[in-house]
């Protein structure tokens, strides 16, 4: 069955939909055409400065919630995951017995995992102009909550969640999965 194939991530498509991110820090404080609301600005800078700055075209998602023990496996390395940490296609999210994590993807898909979970992102591609793409993940163990986003809305077969014993085809929108290893 084709679904079981572990396809390599197709970053080209993901990248094509995302325009380049230029560093505008230098012009932030220049005079603006609109009224600057200083209070909001201050709060915003506070909020944004929590996260490490790592804007790259192959970033597909960010941690919005990270409680207890949460980390990422990327190319054989174990990296700590915090609120604001970016994810790339083919990253694996791992939580410990006291861990849980919530992730927002650039197509507005929202995934969150409970304790003792292993969630591998196997493929993520999103064209932000056409909304075509592919989103395949694998819940090796643990619990997962999914709110599907623009990829699943555009193409009913584009989003799949695998477990060790089944494949879920996602036509939307909110569902839960538990996988016992």
């Amino acid at each position: 069955m084709g679904y079981y194939k572990n396809e390599a991530s197709s970053r080209a498509l993901a990248a094509s939909g995302i325009a380049k991110r230029t560093n505008y820090w230098g012009v932030i404080m220049q005079s603006t055409r609109l009224i600057v609301i200083r209070r909001f600005l201050f709060l915003l800078v506070c909020a944004c400065s929590i996260a490490p700055v790592a804007g790259r075209a192959d970033d597909i998602a960010q941690f919005r919630v990270a409680r207890g023990s949460v980390y990422l496996e990327r190319s054989g390395q174990r990296l700590p995951a915090r609120v604001g940490t970016h994810l790339q296609a083919t990253d694996t999210v791992v939580t410990g017995a006291d861990g849980s994590a919530g992730i927002a993807f650039i197509d507005n898909s929202l995934l969150s995992v409970g304790p003792n979970s292993v969630l591998a992102i196997e493929r993520y591609a999103f064209n932000s102009t056409t909304h075509e793409g592919a989103f395949e993940s694998s819940l090796r163990k643990g619990t997962l909550s999914v709110v599907s986003g623009k990829i699943a809305k555009q193409s009913p077969d584009a989003m799949k969640v695998k477990t060790p014993s089944s494949i879920l085809g996602v036509r939307g929108t909110e569902f839960l999965v538990r996988s016992n290893d």
Partner: peptide
């Protein structure tokens, strides 16, 4: 970005 939102937190798309 001119209003203070860090540009690396802004993605753009043409639909």
């Amino acid at each position: 970005a001119g209003m203070g939102i860090p540009a690396d937190r802004i993605l753009t798309a043409g639909r």
